[in-house]
Design a protein around this nucleic acid. Structure first.
Lengths: 149, 149
DNA sequence: GAATAATACTTGCAAAATGCAAATAATAAA
DNA sequence: TTTATTATTTGCATTTTGCAAGTATTATTC
């Protein structure tokens, strides 16, 4: 059997580079981590600090500071949840939404570039495969989810 | 069209967690970065510092120090190339090889676990797709390779 | 219903990782 | 031989990290 780890390693590295090429948007210099935080806040519905930190697998104390800097940059808003004031609900500011949208566009442009090297059939196969893979990894909980702390 | 970035983001994150679950081997606590360095030294044939640093997209000064710590742990050996003594050729020590092998086994075990959720046909499709993807990303040089410094 | 525990998040601090600029050492070019 | 170029290392200042301990709020217990 061929070396499965090898092809995954290569893929992850490529995709990591793609991610790194991100993200200077309108004066703001957005780090990779910050772009991921913006992405997840945008995606999840009124998430708490813990939710996003867990999704990204970031230590909560580190995450707290990362969010603080995003708040300072006026990209993220933190509002206490009325029914439980311990919890901070995260949301994007107008500027945060704009930045997230620009980054999303840039990423999709790069991905389209990648897919341009394939024909329609290949493209569909690849997309289906990755979905399959994601589903499998989600099932294999002990290996591919947030490590406990 | 569906959101391509989304499925890639999810996949990368899952695989990142899988990687993170690595690597305490025989007393040594191997960080993710260190495990990647071991992997690449093992894979490439008598690589120089620059080669590995470029492969991993790590700044050469940072990489120099990472290698220093691996040398101190007695996992990596650095030998000047006879015909050009500026160049340090990297190799794994016996212990380094052992550790790399153990990590490789752990990773493959986890990947097999993931693939266990699929039937033979799906498995083959996924592997083929990732290879296709890797080839495409290698072609799309401006997006998915080492950023210049 | 006051005392205790648990939860969500923040801060202190010390260690580690980062990367630019400059240094060193070796080879190549002029 | 002098001057560039290349490969790697070190100085240093900044940033990132995560544990331990702290604050604030809610839940539980007696």
């Amino acid at each position: 059997m061929e070396n499965i780890r090898e092809i995954f390693q290569v893929m992850t590295r490529h995709f990591g580079f793609l991610n790194k090429n991100c993200c200077t948007v309108g004066g703001h210099d957005i780090s990779l981590i910050h772009s991921h935080i913006l992405y997840e806040i945008d995606k999840q519905h009124n998430p708490s600090m813990q939710q996003i930190a867990a999704t990204l697998g970031t230590d909560i104390t580190t995450f707290s500071r990362q969010v603080q800097s995003l708040v300072k940059m006026n990209l993220v808003k933190k509002s206490p949840l009325p029914e439980d004031k311990r919890i901070s609900v995260l949301s994007l500011t107008a500027e945060g939404k704009f930045i997230a949208a620009v980054i999303d566009e840039q990423m999709n442009t790069m991905l389209n570039e990648v897919f341009a090297n394939m024909n329609e059939f290949e493209r569909e196969t690849v997309v289906r495969s990755i979905k399959l893979l994601n589903a499998s990894m989600a099932k294999t909980s002990y290996c591919c989810t947030t490590p406990m702390r």
